[in-house]
Every structure is written in structure tokens, then in C-alpha cells.
Simulated assay, not measured.
Amino acid sequence: MTTPIVIIGAGGLAREFHDVLEAVNAVEESAGRQAAFRFLGFVDAQPSTESRVLSRGPVLGGDEILANLDPATQHIIAISNTSVRGKLDELASSLGLHAAVLIHPAATVGRHDNVFGPGTVICANATVTTNVRFGRHVHVDRNVAVGHDTTFDNYVSVFPGASVAGNVDVQSGVTLGTGSSVIQGIRIGANSIIGAGAVVVRDIEANVTAVGSPARAIVR
């Protein structure tokens, strides 16, 4: 059965997630099956790139239209800001709406013990090994590597090229910047930001920005 879906957001990330959606559908259709999803459009009151998204589908309106969606309609939240993503998840959940899981067919995902929370998006060429746990609305971008027994809590963003070793605990609302690295056994506290190219070799407390190699907190 083909599931109707909307993408919340209409910027560059929304277009990237639409690419993932199309890739998922293409695999199904090439195998002679129905497309997994029927894309209805974008949800954004002030789309910053409306001319670019309109070639992919309509902008349906702002958040208020979520209340009018059929309960069978699923959604993905294409918003990088982790706090805003959490608030939108609360809104959609309060309306009884369910989030989809999108995994690009060009991602390498282990077959054993991985758990993907609602709203998780895994982009092309990402690698997820085994027993990795994803909370709600976790975004894993292109060329990310994730090792065994790692946990991502809700609303985590992992930017392109980041590398996360095994047994890492990434708490809610964390952002791992482009090309950052986290060695095994590390805990990163909630709502912290790891800067681009940073190398995390010790635990990072909550609500800080950490940069450099080794990564050190510069903003508290």
C-alpha cells in the first residue's frame, strides 16, 4: 500500500529529504511494486526556496494544515534546528499523526538489531553497523559512519562526513558537525553542538559548543 506523506519544511534540507523519498520509491517501482509513498507536498508558512520546491510538489501551507491531514498521512520533519524539530514533533503527535522512517537505498545498514525511531532519516552513503538505536526524528546525513552499540536520543543531527565510533551515547538535541569524529565510549550531553572537524576524545557536558582537536567546550 502506498502511504501519503508530507515533508515539514521547505528549505534545502527538505529538498534533500525529498531526494531520499524519491530514491526509496524508485527501488520499489523498479522491482515492479507500488511506490512506498505518495508525496502530497511541503508544509511551511514561509518557504525560503519556494521556486525550487515547487518543481517537486506544492507548498500546502503552514503548520495549521497539519490538523486537516488524513490520519493515515505520515510526515518527515526537515528542520535542522533540533529545538524547533522537537516542538514540531510534539505538535504532530498531539494531532495523532505518525512519522515515517526513510533510509536511502544507497546507505549501508546492518541487518541485525538496529532500531529506527519515528522520523529517522538516513541519507545516501551513510553506514550504520549493528545494534544502533535511533530516537525520534534523528537525521543522519551523507557519508556518515556509525559504529556498533551507539545510541542517538531524540532530535539529533549528524552532518555530512561525521564519524561516530562504537558504544557512543549521543543525548537529545545534539548536533554533530560536518566531518567531526567521536571515539568509542564517549557520552555527549543534551543540546550540545560539536563543531565541524572536531575530534571528541572525552565526554562532553550538556548545553555546550565544543570545537577543535581534541574538542573543548568554548560556549556554555
Rank of each mutant, 00 (worst) to 15 (best):
T150Q: 02
G61F: 10
G41A: 05
G86N: 02
E50F: 09
G195V: 11
V24I: 13
S163V: 12
S80G: 14
N25T: 12
R111Y: 09
N81A: 14
V109G: 12
I183H: 01
A36Y: 02
Y155R: 00
E64L: 07
C123G: 03
N114L: 05
D169W: 13
L97K: 04
V53H: 01
T130K: 09
T3G: 05
S51C: 00
P58T: 13
N154T: 12
A206H: 08
S181Q: 13
N191Q: 15
R216M: 08
V219A: 13
I194Q: 07
H75S: 10
A198K: 10
F152P: 04
P214V: 10
L40F: 03
H104Q: 01
A124P: 00
F42M: 04
R56Q: 12
F42V: 00
T175N: 13
I193F: 13
H139Q: 13
R216A: 07
V101M: 03
P105L: 08
A124I: 04
D63W: 08
R142Y: 12
R187E: 12
T108P: 00
T108S: 15
S48H: 14
I183R: 10
I7V: 00
P160D: 03
L95D: 03
V53K: 01
T73I: 09
R202S: 14
F134P: 04
L176K: 02
R220A: 12
L88R: 13
